[in-house]
Write a protein that binds this DNA or RNA. Structure first.
Lengths: 242, 242
DNA sequence: CGGGCTTTTGAGGTGGCTCAAACAGAGTGG
DNA sequence: CCACTCTGTTTGAGCCACCTCAAAAGCCCG
Protein backbone atom coordinates (compact mmCIF):
# COMPACT_ATOMS: atom_id res chain seq x y z
CA UNK A 1 0.00 0.00 0.00
CA UNK A 2 2.49 2.66 1.10
CA UNK A 3 4.73 3.20 -1.85
CA UNK A 4 6.84 5.76 -0.04
CA UNK A 5 10.08 3.85 0.15
CA UNK A 6 10.10 2.73 -3.46
CA UNK A 7 12.32 4.61 -5.85
CA UNK A 8 11.68 4.85 -9.56
CA UNK A 9 13.35 1.65 -10.51
CA UNK A 10 12.41 -1.42 -12.38
CA UNK A 11 12.38 -3.47 -9.22
CA UNK A 12 9.16 -1.68 -8.33
CA UNK A 13 7.39 -3.91 -10.77
CA UNK A 14 5.08 -6.27 -8.90
CA UNK A 15 6.57 -9.73 -8.53
CA UNK A 16 3.84 -11.41 -10.52
CA UNK A 17 4.18 -8.99 -13.39
CA UNK A 18 7.94 -9.58 -13.64
CA UNK A 19 7.53 -12.78 -15.57
CA UNK A 20 4.06 -12.19 -16.99
CA UNK A 21 3.84 -12.34 -20.73
CA UNK A 22 1.28 -9.54 -20.75
CA UNK A 23 4.08 -7.23 -19.65
CA UNK A 24 6.09 -8.04 -22.72
CA UNK A 25 3.66 -8.55 -25.55
CA UNK A 26 0.33 -7.94 -23.88
CA UNK A 27 -1.56 -4.90 -22.80
CA UNK A 28 0.54 -4.27 -19.69
CA UNK A 29 3.54 -3.58 -21.91
CA UNK A 30 2.53 0.07 -22.17
CA UNK A 31 2.52 0.63 -18.43
CA UNK A 32 5.57 1.96 -16.63
CA UNK A 33 6.55 0.70 -13.19
CA UNK A 34 4.35 3.13 -11.33
CA UNK A 35 1.32 2.52 -13.51
CA UNK A 36 1.87 -1.18 -13.24
CA UNK A 37 1.88 -0.86 -9.49
CA UNK A 38 -1.37 1.07 -9.52
CA UNK A 39 -2.81 -1.44 -11.94
CA UNK A 40 -1.76 -4.40 -9.82
CA UNK A 41 -3.77 -3.04 -6.92
CA UNK A 42 -6.90 -4.01 -8.80
CA UNK A 43 -5.79 -7.33 -10.20
CA UNK A 44 -5.84 -10.81 -8.79
CA UNK A 45 -4.42 -13.98 -10.22
CA UNK A 46 -7.02 -16.70 -10.48
CA UNK A 47 -6.60 -20.32 -11.49
CA UNK A 48 -9.19 -22.48 -13.19
CA UNK A 49 -9.16 -26.14 -14.09
CA UNK A 50 -9.75 -27.37 -17.63
CA UNK A 51 -13.41 -27.25 -18.54
CA UNK A 52 -14.41 -24.61 -16.01
CA UNK A 53 -16.67 -21.89 -17.31
CA UNK A 54 -15.21 -18.43 -16.87
CA UNK A 55 -17.98 -16.41 -18.42
CA UNK A 56 -21.42 -17.34 -19.63
CA UNK A 57 -23.13 -16.25 -22.86
CA UNK A 58 -25.74 -13.67 -21.97
CA UNK A 59 -24.54 -13.25 -18.41
CA UNK A 60 -23.45 -9.85 -17.17
CA UNK A 61 -19.76 -9.03 -17.26
CA UNK A 62 -18.13 -7.94 -14.03
CA UNK A 63 -14.47 -8.46 -14.80
CA UNK A 64 -11.89 -8.77 -17.53
CA UNK A 65 -8.83 -11.00 -17.65
CA UNK A 66 -5.49 -11.48 -19.22
CA UNK A 67 -4.44 -15.02 -19.95
CA UNK A 68 -1.18 -15.76 -18.14
CA UNK A 69 -0.99 -19.47 -18.83
CA UNK A 70 -3.15 -21.96 -20.68
CA UNK A 71 -5.82 -21.59 -23.33
CA UNK A 72 -9.29 -20.07 -23.13
CA UNK A 73 -11.95 -20.96 -25.69
CA UNK A 74 -14.78 -18.64 -26.65
CA UNK A 75 -17.97 -20.48 -27.51
CA UNK A 76 -21.31 -19.57 -28.99
CA UNK A 77 -24.23 -21.93 -28.63
CA UNK A 78 -27.44 -22.20 -30.64
CA UNK A 79 -30.80 -22.87 -29.01
CA UNK A 80 -30.67 -26.57 -29.84
CA UNK A 81 -27.17 -27.04 -28.45
CA UNK A 82 -25.03 -26.78 -31.56
CA UNK A 83 -21.77 -25.12 -30.61
CA UNK A 84 -19.19 -23.07 -32.42
CA UNK A 85 -15.88 -22.05 -30.93
CA UNK A 86 -15.37 -18.49 -32.16
CA UNK A 87 -11.97 -17.80 -30.68
CA UNK A 88 -9.02 -19.18 -28.78
CA UNK A 89 -7.07 -16.93 -26.46
CA UNK A 90 -3.50 -17.73 -25.48
CA UNK A 91 -1.18 -15.80 -23.18
CA UNK A 92 -0.98 -12.85 -23.12
CA UNK A 93 -4.36 -12.25 -24.76
CA UNK A 94 -7.07 -10.15 -23.21
CA UNK A 95 -10.39 -11.89 -22.50
CA UNK A 96 -13.66 -10.00 -22.30
CA UNK A 97 -15.71 -7.65 -24.38
CA UNK A 98 -14.79 -4.13 -23.33
CA UNK A 99 -17.82 -1.92 -22.57
CA UNK A 100 -20.37 -4.70 -23.07
CA UNK A 101 -22.75 -5.29 -20.20
CA UNK A 102 -23.37 -8.84 -21.13
CA UNK A 103 -21.15 -11.36 -22.78
CA UNK A 104 -21.87 -12.49 -26.33
CA UNK A 105 -19.85 -15.65 -25.77
CA UNK A 106 -19.21 -18.32 -23.20
CA UNK A 107 -15.58 -18.43 -22.12
CA UNK A 108 -14.26 -21.75 -20.91
CA UNK A 109 -10.83 -22.93 -19.82
CA UNK A 110 -9.58 -25.33 -22.49
CA UNK A 111 -6.68 -26.32 -20.26
CA UNK A 112 -5.76 -25.43 -16.71
CA UNK A 113 -5.36 -21.68 -16.86
CA UNK A 114 -4.04 -18.79 -14.89
CA UNK A 115 -5.74 -15.49 -15.44
CA UNK A 116 -4.95 -12.01 -14.23
CA UNK A 117 -8.35 -10.70 -13.33
CA UNK A 118 -9.40 -7.07 -13.02
CA UNK A 119 -12.82 -5.65 -12.33
CA UNK A 120 -14.72 -4.18 -15.25
CA UNK A 121 -15.03 -0.87 -13.46
CA UNK A 122 -11.34 -0.61 -12.62
CA UNK A 123 -10.10 -1.43 -16.08
CA UNK A 124 -12.53 0.92 -17.75
CA UNK A 125 -11.41 3.71 -15.47
CA UNK A 126 -7.79 3.04 -16.30
CA UNK A 127 -8.51 2.86 -20.01
CA UNK A 128 -10.32 6.19 -19.86
CA UNK A 129 -7.32 7.86 -18.28
CA UNK A 130 -4.60 6.07 -20.19
CA UNK A 131 -4.71 6.33 -23.98
CA UNK A 132 -1.75 4.00 -24.30
CA UNK A 133 -3.74 1.27 -22.64
CA UNK A 134 -6.66 1.99 -24.89
CA UNK A 135 -4.33 1.73 -27.84
CA UNK A 136 -3.19 -1.70 -26.78
CA UNK A 137 -6.74 -2.91 -26.40
CA UNK A 138 -7.50 -1.50 -29.82
CA UNK A 139 -4.64 -3.51 -31.25
CA UNK A 140 -5.88 -6.63 -29.51
CA UNK A 141 -9.36 -6.06 -30.92
CA UNK A 142 -7.92 -5.59 -34.40
CA UNK A 143 -6.03 -8.87 -34.08
CA UNK A 144 -9.23 -10.56 -32.97
CA UNK A 145 -11.02 -9.24 -36.04
CA UNK A 146 -8.25 -10.46 -38.32
CA UNK A 147 -8.33 -13.87 -36.76
CA UNK A 148 -12.11 -14.20 -36.83
CA UNK A 149 -12.15 -13.26 -40.50
CA UNK A 150 -9.41 -15.73 -41.27
CA UNK A 151 -11.55 -18.47 -39.75
CA UNK A 152 -14.65 -17.29 -41.56
CA UNK A 153 -12.89 -18.26 -44.78
CA UNK A 154 -12.06 -21.67 -43.39
CA UNK A 155 -15.58 -22.24 -42.08
CA UNK A 156 -17.30 -21.03 -45.20
CA UNK A 157 -15.06 -22.25 -47.99
CA UNK A 158 -12.52 -24.84 -46.94
CA UNK A 159 -12.95 -28.61 -47.05
CA UNK A 160 -12.66 -30.71 -43.91
CA UNK A 161 -9.09 -31.68 -44.69
CA UNK A 162 -8.12 -28.09 -45.45
CA UNK A 163 -9.66 -27.02 -42.16
CA UNK A 164 -7.60 -29.54 -40.24
CA UNK A 165 -4.42 -28.57 -42.03
CA UNK A 166 -5.08 -24.88 -41.37
CA UNK A 167 -5.78 -25.58 -37.73
CA UNK A 168 -2.62 -27.60 -37.16
CA UNK A 169 -0.63 -25.01 -39.04
CA UNK A 170 -1.97 -22.18 -36.91
CA UNK A 171 -1.42 -24.02 -33.63
CA UNK A 172 2.06 -25.00 -34.69
CA UNK A 173 2.84 -21.48 -35.76
CA UNK A 174 1.50 -20.08 -32.54
CA UNK A 175 3.26 -22.47 -30.22
CA UNK A 176 6.58 -22.22 -31.96
CA UNK A 177 6.81 -18.85 -33.68
CA UNK A 178 10.61 -18.96 -33.65
CA UNK A 179 11.01 -21.71 -36.18
CA UNK A 180 8.31 -20.67 -38.58
CA UNK A 181 10.27 -21.07 -41.77
CA UNK A 182 12.70 -23.96 -41.57
CA UNK A 183 11.68 -27.48 -42.33
CA UNK A 184 12.38 -29.35 -39.13
CA UNK A 185 9.53 -31.32 -37.67
CA UNK A 186 7.47 -29.60 -35.02
CA UNK A 187 5.93 -31.36 -32.05
CA UNK A 188 3.35 -29.87 -29.74
CA UNK A 189 0.45 -30.60 -27.47
CA UNK A 190 -3.01 -29.95 -28.84
CA UNK A 191 -4.86 -27.53 -26.58
CA UNK A 192 -8.21 -29.04 -27.59
CA UNK A 193 -9.95 -32.40 -27.59
CA UNK A 194 -11.26 -33.83 -30.85
CA UNK A 195 -14.74 -32.64 -29.92
CA UNK A 196 -13.47 -29.13 -29.36
CA UNK A 197 -11.54 -29.14 -32.62
CA UNK A 198 -14.77 -30.19 -34.30
CA UNK A 199 -16.62 -27.28 -32.68
CA UNK A 200 -13.88 -24.94 -33.82
CA UNK A 201 -13.82 -26.13 -37.42
CA UNK A 202 -17.53 -26.63 -37.91
CA UNK A 203 -17.14 -30.40 -38.29
CA UNK A 204 -18.07 -33.51 -36.34
CA UNK A 205 -15.71 -35.43 -34.13
CA UNK A 206 -15.76 -38.33 -36.59
CA UNK A 207 -14.61 -36.19 -39.47
CA UNK A 208 -11.86 -34.60 -37.37
CA UNK A 209 -10.54 -37.99 -36.38
CA UNK A 210 -10.75 -39.35 -39.91
CA UNK A 211 -8.91 -36.39 -41.38
CA UNK A 212 -6.19 -36.57 -38.75
CA UNK A 213 -5.78 -40.24 -39.57
CA UNK A 214 -5.51 -39.35 -43.20
CA UNK A 215 -2.82 -36.74 -42.58
CA UNK A 216 -0.95 -39.39 -40.60
CA UNK A 217 -1.41 -42.05 -43.28
CA UNK A 218 -0.02 -39.57 -45.81
CA UNK A 219 3.07 -39.00 -43.70
CA UNK A 220 2.35 -35.35 -43.00
CA UNK A 221 1.89 -35.67 -39.24
CA UNK A 222 2.52 -38.21 -36.50
CA UNK A 223 0.02 -38.78 -33.71
CA UNK A 224 2.22 -39.46 -30.68
CA UNK A 225 -0.68 -39.69 -28.25
CA UNK A 226 -4.19 -38.28 -28.08
CA UNK A 227 -2.94 -34.80 -27.51
CA UNK A 228 0.59 -34.89 -28.90
CA UNK A 229 0.99 -34.17 -32.57
CA UNK A 230 4.15 -33.89 -34.59
CA UNK A 231 4.19 -32.11 -37.88
CA UNK A 232 6.51 -34.04 -40.15
CA UNK A 233 6.12 -32.18 -43.40
CA UNK A 234 5.21 -28.55 -42.96
CA UNK A 235 5.37 -27.78 -46.60
CA UNK A 236 2.76 -30.33 -47.54
CA UNK A 237 0.65 -29.33 -44.55
CA UNK A 238 0.75 -25.79 -45.84
CA UNK A 239 -0.22 -26.94 -49.31
CA UNK A 240 -3.24 -28.71 -47.94
CA UNK A 241 -4.54 -25.74 -46.02
CA UNK A 242 -6.20 -24.14 -49.01
CA UNK B 1 -4.99 27.39 -39.57
CA UNK B 2 -5.96 30.83 -38.21
CA UNK B 3 -9.14 30.14 -36.35
CA UNK B 4 -9.35 33.69 -35.11
CA UNK B 5 -12.60 34.75 -36.70
CA UNK B 6 -14.42 31.53 -35.97
CA UNK B 7 -16.51 31.50 -32.87
CA UNK B 8 -17.36 28.28 -31.16
CA UNK B 9 -20.49 27.61 -33.08
CA UNK B 10 -21.99 24.70 -34.86
CA UNK B 11 -22.04 26.48 -38.19
CA UNK B 12 -18.30 25.99 -38.40
CA UNK B 13 -18.90 22.38 -39.24
CA UNK B 14 -17.86 21.64 -42.82
CA UNK B 15 -20.82 21.46 -45.17
CA UNK B 16 -20.25 17.85 -46.08
CA UNK B 17 -20.05 16.77 -42.47
CA UNK B 18 -23.36 18.46 -41.62
CA UNK B 19 -25.42 15.63 -42.97
CA UNK B 20 -22.84 12.85 -42.76
CA UNK B 21 -23.91 9.89 -40.72
CA UNK B 22 -20.38 9.48 -39.39
CA UNK B 23 -20.90 12.69 -37.48
CA UNK B 24 -23.84 11.24 -35.65
CA UNK B 25 -23.13 7.59 -35.09
CA UNK B 26 -19.70 7.20 -36.62
CA UNK B 27 -16.22 8.06 -35.60
CA UNK B 28 -16.55 11.78 -36.34
CA UNK B 29 -19.14 12.04 -33.60
CA UNK B 30 -16.41 12.62 -31.02
CA UNK B 31 -14.95 15.60 -32.85
CA UNK B 32 -15.98 19.14 -31.99
CA UNK B 33 -16.40 21.77 -34.68
CA UNK B 34 -12.76 22.82 -34.64
CA UNK B 35 -11.45 19.28 -34.71
CA UNK B 36 -13.85 18.44 -37.48
CA UNK B 37 -12.55 21.36 -39.48
CA UNK B 38 -8.97 20.22 -39.02
CA UNK B 39 -10.02 16.70 -39.87
CA UNK B 40 -11.83 17.79 -43.01
CA UNK B 41 -8.62 19.33 -44.34
CA UNK B 42 -7.34 15.81 -44.89
CA UNK B 43 -10.49 14.17 -46.19
CA UNK B 44 -11.96 13.92 -49.62
CA UNK B 45 -15.26 12.48 -50.70
CA UNK B 46 -14.86 9.83 -53.35
CA UNK B 47 -17.52 7.99 -55.31
CA UNK B 48 -17.25 4.48 -56.69
CA UNK B 49 -19.58 2.48 -58.85
CA UNK B 50 -20.89 -0.93 -57.84
CA UNK B 51 -18.26 -3.59 -58.33
CA UNK B 52 -15.26 -1.31 -58.17
CA UNK B 53 -12.39 -2.53 -56.07
CA UNK B 54 -11.45 -0.13 -53.31
CA UNK B 55 -8.65 -2.07 -51.73
CA UNK B 56 -6.87 -5.24 -52.73
CA UNK B 57 -5.93 -8.19 -50.54
CA UNK B 58 -2.21 -8.05 -49.92
CA UNK B 59 -1.81 -4.56 -51.35
CA UNK B 60 -0.38 -1.78 -49.25
CA UNK B 61 -2.81 0.50 -47.47
CA UNK B 62 -2.47 4.22 -48.10
CA UNK B 63 -5.82 5.51 -46.92
CA UNK B 64 -8.82 4.79 -44.73
CA UNK B 65 -12.46 5.58 -45.41
CA UNK B 66 -15.79 6.11 -43.80
CA UNK B 67 -18.79 4.84 -45.69
CA UNK B 68 -21.16 7.74 -46.32
CA UNK B 69 -23.60 5.97 -48.62
CA UNK B 70 -23.90 2.47 -49.99
CA UNK B 71 -22.43 -0.85 -48.97
CA UNK B 72 -18.85 -2.08 -49.02
CA UNK B 73 -18.06 -5.80 -48.94
CA UNK B 74 -14.86 -7.23 -47.52
CA UNK B 75 -13.68 -10.32 -49.33
CA UNK B 76 -11.03 -12.94 -48.78
CA UNK B 77 -9.98 -15.17 -51.64
CA UNK B 78 -8.24 -18.55 -51.62
CA UNK B 79 -5.53 -19.44 -54.11
CA UNK B 80 -7.94 -21.35 -56.34
CA UNK B 81 -10.48 -18.55 -56.45
CA UNK B 82 -12.94 -19.59 -53.76
CA UNK B 83 -14.25 -16.45 -52.10
CA UNK B 84 -15.66 -15.61 -48.71
CA UNK B 85 -17.21 -12.29 -47.83
CA UNK B 86 -16.00 -11.59 -44.29
CA UNK B 87 -17.80 -8.37 -43.62
CA UNK B 88 -20.28 -5.81 -44.90
CA UNK B 89 -19.82 -2.18 -44.03
CA UNK B 90 -22.71 0.27 -44.12
CA UNK B 91 -22.74 3.99 -43.37
CA UNK B 92 -21.21 5.22 -41.15
CA UNK B 93 -18.75 2.32 -40.75
CA UNK B 94 -15.03 2.73 -40.92
CA UNK B 95 -13.23 0.78 -43.64
CA UNK B 96 -9.60 -0.20 -43.36
CA UNK B 97 -7.32 -2.02 -40.99
CA UNK B 98 -5.75 0.57 -38.72
CA UNK B 99 -1.96 0.26 -38.45
CA UNK B 100 -1.69 -2.56 -40.98
CA UNK B 101 0.71 -1.98 -43.84
CA UNK B 102 -1.08 -4.32 -46.12
CA UNK B 103 -4.71 -5.23 -46.33
CA UNK B 104 -5.87 -8.69 -45.30
CA UNK B 105 -9.02 -8.30 -47.36
CA UNK B 106 -10.22 -7.01 -50.68
CA UNK B 107 -12.76 -4.22 -50.30
CA UNK B 108 -15.26 -3.81 -53.09
CA UNK B 109 -18.24 -1.53 -53.58
CA UNK B 110 -21.36 -3.69 -53.39
CA UNK B 111 -23.48 -0.79 -54.57
CA UNK B 112 -22.61 2.69 -55.75
CA UNK B 113 -20.87 4.17 -52.75
CA UNK B 114 -19.68 7.45 -51.38
CA UNK B 115 -16.69 7.31 -49.11
CA UNK B 116 -14.99 9.93 -47.01
CA UNK B 117 -11.35 9.19 -47.60
CA UNK B 118 -8.42 10.17 -45.40
CA UNK B 119 -4.77 9.27 -45.79
CA UNK B 120 -3.38 6.62 -43.53
CA UNK B 121 -0.74 8.97 -42.23
CA UNK B 122 -3.19 11.76 -41.43
CA UNK B 123 -5.66 9.57 -39.61
CA UNK B 124 -2.99 7.82 -37.59
CA UNK B 125 -1.59 11.17 -36.53
CA UNK B 126 -5.02 12.33 -35.43
CA UNK B 127 -5.69 9.10 -33.59
CA UNK B 128 -2.38 9.41 -31.75
CA UNK B 129 -3.29 12.87 -30.55
CA UNK B 130 -6.96 12.32 -29.91
CA UNK B 131 -7.88 9.52 -27.51
CA UNK B 132 -11.57 10.09 -28.13
CA UNK B 133 -11.05 9.22 -31.76
CA UNK B 134 -9.08 6.17 -30.78
CA UNK B 135 -11.92 5.18 -28.48
CA UNK B 136 -14.40 5.35 -31.34
CA UNK B 137 -12.23 3.22 -33.53
CA UNK B 138 -11.89 0.74 -30.69
CA UNK B 139 -15.66 0.54 -30.45
CA UNK B 140 -15.90 0.00 -34.18
CA UNK B 141 -13.33 -2.78 -33.98
CA UNK B 142 -15.24 -4.40 -31.13
CA UNK B 143 -18.43 -4.31 -33.17
CA UNK B 144 -16.56 -5.87 -36.07
CA UNK B 145 -15.38 -8.70 -33.81
CA UNK B 146 -18.90 -9.31 -32.51
CA UNK B 147 -20.26 -9.43 -36.00
CA UNK B 148 -17.54 -11.71 -37.35
CA UNK B 149 -18.11 -14.14 -34.49
CA UNK B 150 -21.83 -14.10 -35.04
CA UNK B 151 -21.23 -15.16 -38.63
CA UNK B 152 -18.73 -17.80 -37.61
CA UNK B 153 -21.60 -19.58 -35.88
CA UNK B 154 -23.72 -19.34 -39.00
CA UNK B 155 -20.91 -20.52 -41.27
CA UNK B 156 -19.85 -23.38 -39.04
CA UNK B 157 -23.10 -24.66 -37.63
CA UNK B 158 -26.19 -23.42 -39.42
CA UNK B 159 -27.98 -25.12 -42.28
CA UNK B 160 -28.42 -23.38 -45.63
CA UNK B 161 -31.95 -22.34 -44.81
CA UNK B 162 -30.96 -21.04 -41.38
CA UNK B 163 -28.16 -19.05 -43.00
CA UNK B 164 -30.59 -17.40 -45.39
CA UNK B 165 -33.06 -16.63 -42.63
CA UNK B 166 -30.29 -15.14 -40.48
CA UNK B 167 -29.05 -13.07 -43.37
CA UNK B 168 -32.45 -11.64 -44.25
CA UNK B 169 -33.11 -10.98 -40.59
CA UNK B 170 -29.86 -9.09 -40.17
CA UNK B 171 -30.31 -7.02 -43.30
CA UNK B 172 -33.87 -6.23 -42.34
CA UNK B 173 -32.83 -5.30 -38.84
CA UNK B 174 -30.07 -3.12 -40.14
CA UNK B 175 -32.09 -1.30 -42.73
CA UNK B 176 -35.03 -0.69 -40.47
CA UNK B 177 -33.86 -0.62 -36.88
CA UNK B 178 -36.86 1.43 -35.77
CA UNK B 179 -39.44 -1.24 -36.20
CA UNK B 180 -37.48 -4.17 -34.91
CA UNK B 181 -40.18 -5.64 -32.73
CA UNK B 182 -43.62 -5.18 -34.24
CA UNK B 183 -45.05 -7.58 -36.76
CA UNK B 184 -45.63 -5.48 -39.83
CA UNK B 185 -44.09 -6.68 -43.04
CA UNK B 186 -40.75 -5.21 -43.95
CA UNK B 187 -39.65 -4.49 -47.49
CA UNK B 188 -36.13 -3.63 -48.54
CA UNK B 189 -33.59 -3.80 -51.29
CA UNK B 190 -30.94 -6.51 -51.03
CA UNK B 191 -27.48 -4.96 -51.16
CA UNK B 192 -26.03 -8.12 -52.70
CA UNK B 193 -26.54 -10.33 -55.73
CA UNK B 194 -27.30 -14.02 -55.27
CA UNK B 195 -23.67 -14.81 -55.98
CA UNK B 196 -22.53 -12.39 -53.30
CA UNK B 197 -25.01 -13.76 -50.79
CA UNK B 198 -23.59 -17.19 -51.55
CA UNK B 199 -20.07 -15.92 -50.90
CA UNK B 200 -21.22 -14.41 -47.66
CA UNK B 201 -23.02 -17.49 -46.39
CA UNK B 202 -20.57 -20.10 -47.60
CA UNK B 203 -23.06 -21.55 -50.08
CA UNK B 204 -23.48 -21.75 -53.83
CA UNK B 205 -25.72 -19.53 -55.86
CA UNK B 206 -28.02 -22.44 -56.57
CA UNK B 207 -28.60 -23.17 -52.94
CA UNK B 208 -29.21 -19.51 -52.16
CA UNK B 209 -31.82 -19.29 -54.88
CA UNK B 210 -33.47 -22.54 -53.86
CA UNK B 211 -33.72 -21.52 -50.21
CA UNK B 212 -35.12 -18.12 -51.10
CA UNK B 213 -37.73 -19.87 -53.22
CA UNK B 214 -38.54 -22.12 -50.32
CA UNK B 215 -39.00 -19.19 -47.93
CA UNK B 216 -41.32 -17.66 -50.50
CA UNK B 217 -43.26 -20.90 -51.02
CA UNK B 218 -43.72 -21.11 -47.25
CA UNK B 219 -45.16 -17.60 -47.13
CA UNK B 220 -42.36 -16.12 -45.06
CA UNK B 221 -41.06 -13.70 -47.67
CA UNK B 222 -42.13 -12.24 -51.01
CA UNK B 223 -39.66 -11.74 -53.84
CA UNK B 224 -40.86 -8.53 -55.49
CA UNK B 225 -37.99 -8.39 -57.94
CA UNK B 226 -34.43 -9.71 -58.03
CA UNK B 227 -33.29 -7.28 -55.42
CA UNK B 228 -36.50 -6.40 -53.62
CA UNK B 229 -37.52 -8.64 -50.77
CA UNK B 230 -40.43 -8.30 -48.42
CA UNK B 231 -40.47 -10.09 -45.12
CA UNK B 232 -44.02 -11.21 -44.51
CA UNK B 233 -43.65 -13.17 -41.30
CA UNK B 234 -40.81 -12.00 -39.14
CA UNK B 235 -41.58 -14.35 -36.36
CA UNK B 236 -41.26 -17.45 -38.50
CA UNK B 237 -38.17 -15.99 -40.18
CA UNK B 238 -36.66 -15.59 -36.74
CA UNK B 239 -37.59 -19.15 -35.83
CA UNK B 240 -35.82 -20.44 -38.88
CA UNK B 241 -32.59 -18.62 -38.21
CA UNK B 242 -31.36 -21.20 -35.71
C1' DC C 1 -7.55 -55.65 -14.96
C1' DG C 2 -12.04 -53.49 -15.08
C1' DG C 3 -14.83 -49.51 -15.97
C1' DG C 4 -15.32 -45.05 -17.92
C1' DC C 5 -13.63 -42.00 -20.76
C1' DT C 6 -12.00 -40.26 -25.63
C1' DT C 7 -10.88 -41.66 -30.09
C1' DT C 8 -10.97 -44.43 -34.21
C1' DT C 9 -13.19 -46.74 -37.77
C1' DG C 10 -17.07 -48.52 -40.50
C1' DA C 11 -21.57 -48.54 -43.11
C1' DG C 12 -25.04 -46.06 -44.88
C1' DG C 13 -27.82 -41.65 -45.52
C1' DT C 14 -28.40 -36.79 -47.02
C1' DG C 15 -27.76 -31.77 -47.52
C1' DG C 16 -25.77 -29.03 -50.39
C1' DC C 17 -22.73 -29.22 -54.52
C1' DT C 18 -21.94 -29.76 -59.66
C1' DC C 19 -23.42 -29.50 -64.07
C1' DA C 20 -26.71 -28.05 -67.17
C1' DA C 21 -30.70 -26.09 -69.13
C1' DA C 22 -34.50 -22.94 -69.08
C1' DC C 23 -36.00 -18.36 -67.74
C1' DA C 24 -36.31 -13.26 -66.72
C1' DG C 25 -34.95 -8.39 -66.84
C1' DA C 26 -32.48 -4.64 -68.48
C1' DG C 27 -30.35 -2.55 -72.05
C1' DT C 28 -29.33 -1.83 -77.10
C1' DG C 29 -29.92 -1.37 -81.56
C1' DG C 30 -32.91 -1.98 -85.65
C1' DC D 1 -41.94 -1.43 -80.37
C1' DC D 2 -39.89 -5.55 -81.17
C1' DA D 3 -36.08 -8.87 -81.61
C1' DC D 4 -31.48 -9.75 -79.64
C1' DT D 5 -28.10 -10.11 -76.31
C1' DC D 6 -26.06 -10.16 -71.88
C1' DT D 7 -26.17 -11.02 -67.31
C1' DG D 8 -28.39 -12.72 -63.27
C1' DT D 9 -31.60 -16.13 -61.55
C1' DT D 10 -34.34 -20.29 -61.11
C1' DT D 11 -34.92 -25.06 -61.34
C1' DG D 12 -33.80 -29.96 -62.15
C1' DA D 13 -31.04 -34.42 -61.91
C1' DG D 14 -27.43 -36.78 -60.08
C1' DC D 15 -23.40 -37.10 -57.05
C1' DC D 16 -20.24 -36.73 -53.21
C1' DA D 17 -18.32 -34.87 -48.86
C1' DC D 18 -19.51 -34.96 -44.64
C1' DC D 19 -22.99 -36.38 -41.31
C1' DT D 20 -25.36 -40.00 -38.42
C1' DC D 21 -25.39 -43.97 -35.96
C1' DA D 22 -22.98 -47.68 -34.10
C1' DA D 23 -19.40 -50.60 -32.70
C1' DA D 24 -14.64 -51.45 -31.58
C1' DA D 25 -10.35 -49.94 -29.70
C1' DG D 26 -7.20 -47.27 -26.85
C1' DC D 27 -5.98 -44.80 -22.78
C1' DC D 28 -6.22 -43.46 -18.01
C1' DC D 29 -7.17 -44.20 -13.27
C1' DG D 30 -8.85 -46.59 -9.77
Amino acid sequence: MSAGRQDVHNSNVPALCQSCEARHNGMCGVLNADELLAFAKHTRVVRHGAGEELLSEGASITAYSNVMRGVVKLIKTLADGRRQIVGLQFAPDFVGRLYADESAVTAEAASDVELCRISKRALERMVASNPMLEGRLLKQALRDVDEAREWMVALGRKTASEKLASFLGQIGRYLDPMVAQDDRTLAFELPLTRAEIADFLGLTIGTVSRELSRLKRDGIIEIRSRRKIEIIDRQRLQQRSG
